[in-house]
Design a protein around this nucleic acid. Structure first.
Lengths: 294, 294
DNA sequence: GAGAGCATATGAGGTTTCCTCATGTTTTGT
DNA sequence: ACAAAACATGAGGAAACCTCATATGCTCTC
């Protein structure tokens, strides 16, 4: 329950926030279209209400105490959330919102091209996308659903399988002087891999008859940067086929050895098992299942 | 930059929040120590300012539109953050706060017993603990630092090693009728393992001369539940020694085969590389380094 | 189906908060 | 030394907020 007693007023919080950011009451006043006098008073009001000093008034300069700076960090985040929520509501007065955590590569290549159709089909839902590289706890985040790659190893969620994945070993055209005679010749080139998928090269080698290897490789946190690395000749990368179709047709990447092999994990839409049902999520789930089967 | 124009007033947000939660304006009025009249007007003010209807007035009952419910979810979170920040500031006017993400088992067994000393040494810092089972992105969370188990595989952070770990194979006293003749006899018992550490049993077997195994095992997301499972005879678990000292001395768990083996990962304190230096984090880092070496 | 009980809405009016204007004081820079 | 710039504050008005009193409509019970 929220007690009204300890919630400062909006103007006083805005004043503090702006003063912290801009460094002076005058500048804050200008930004907020107020007078310097108003800011000065609001700061006093806030100090009075919280019952402590927030500002060190030193030679007619304002400086926040360390505690006030911490406080400011928190309230800025909260104010931005309020602002964002209000703007979203104005932009979309009839529908709901769907907060979706995506994986950057999947979001860019699979979801983004299709999402316009969802928007057309469900104009009442605004989709907010935010990238997350790792699974997270739904209970302490504000997401309705997430895109997950891997196996069904996220606890407390339900899964909708979206897509399997094939991995192809590729490099820039110039990297290999001569074609590889066998798969394990690849070990003489620098290998690139994703932090979150360090087993992939081992699986690729096993698939080509060289088991129990776990070759060293350069680490990237996202496919986008790894793809760029490969294009620029940094080494050989094992990349999902659906991400690099353009790079292959435009010869910026070329296959190195063998065909694409099926990836160990798949892409899923996941959402918390215990969430209260919400229309936007249900619409999205139905839509994405249909897209998958299209 | 926060525009003052679209930020509703505090009373109007509180009114909406309470109405959504309590279902009526009268109940909201009582909770907020206001009159029903005040609530009714604030709702109208809010609708006016946002320029849209939030409430379906149906037979003298108030019902929020779906969009308003979504909006409510967001503002409630923000209001709670403001409330929390204000209370924290009042409780601790001189110092900073340190938001720390911990691993539950490490937090309970290693950190908790020591944390009182930090509090005594640094009364000016309030430590907020929150458990996280997986690495996360510091840029989009509000944490100052985190406890990490594994290798140095979290990107964009600095590391302070805290502790290595030894793993012991244990079960309830009654589970094994006869002592194991060899390590791989363990495969005939159900094995328990952590979701995030699925390679551990393979390493344990390799350590005892049986390489390249990846035995199936029951999955747990936290050590606490897994320990309870082992105590109640669910199977054999590979548990960090520092977590189960009591269980061993009190014979609720007994070693199954062999001594403890060193774990692949270690515990670290990690914090974002690019963060602006803050006194609470520096104090904590210094303190925890000293604790580690004590 | 009449009346009690409980909702919300609203007119009128008071109180508090918020803001500006005008002015004073101190510091900084030229 | 003087201008410019910064913050503080007294006074007063405007806006926001709240209450009281009252009106109206729904629902449930007898």
């Amino acid at each position: 329950m929220l007690s009204r007693r300890y919630l400062p007023s909006m103007p006083s919080l805005l004043a503090l926030e702006a003063v912290e950011r801009l460094g002076s009451a005058s500048a804050a006043a200008e930004e907020l279209n107020l007078t310097q006098s108003a800011i000065s008073r609001q700061l006093q009001v806030l100090e009075g209400q919280l019952g402590l000093g927030l500002i060190i008034r030193d030679k007619h300069r304002l400086r926040l105490t360390p505690a006030a700076q911490d406080y400011c960090r928190e309230i800025r985040r909260a104010l931005q959330a309020l602002n964002q929520a209000s703007l979203t509501l104005r932009a979309n007065p009839n529908g709901g919102t769907l907060n979706l955590a995506i994986l950057p590569a999947f979001g860019m290549h699979w979801l983004a091209p299709r999402l316009a159709r969802f928007a057309a089909q469900h104009p009442e839902v605004t989709v907010n996308l935010s990238t997350r590289l790792q699974p997270f706890d739904f209970a302490i985040s504000h997401f309705d659903a997430a895109i997950h790659y891997g196996r069904q190893d996220w606890s407390g969620v339900d899964y909708l399988p979206l897509m399997a994945e094939d991995l192809l070993a590729v490099s820039s055209a110039g990297l290999l002087k001569t074609p590889l005679a066998s798969a394990d010749d690849i070990l003489s080139y620098p290998l690139l891999q994703l932090e979150s998928r360090t087993g992939d090269w081992g699986r690729w080698l096993a698939h080509h008859g060289t088991p129990n290897q776990r070759p060293p490789a350069m680490l990237f946190d996202q496919f986008a940067t790894m793809t760029q690395g490969a294009i620029h000749g940094l080494g050989v990368a094992l990349l999902p086929l659906f991400l690099i179709e353009r790079e292959l047709t435009e010869n910026r990447l070329t296959p190195v050895f063998g065909p694409a092999i099926p990836s160990l994990g798949s892409y899923y839409l996941v959402w918390p098992k215990d969430a209260v049902p919400r229309a936007p999520l249900a619409s999205f789930r139905n839509w994405i299942a249909a897209e998958r089967d299209a």
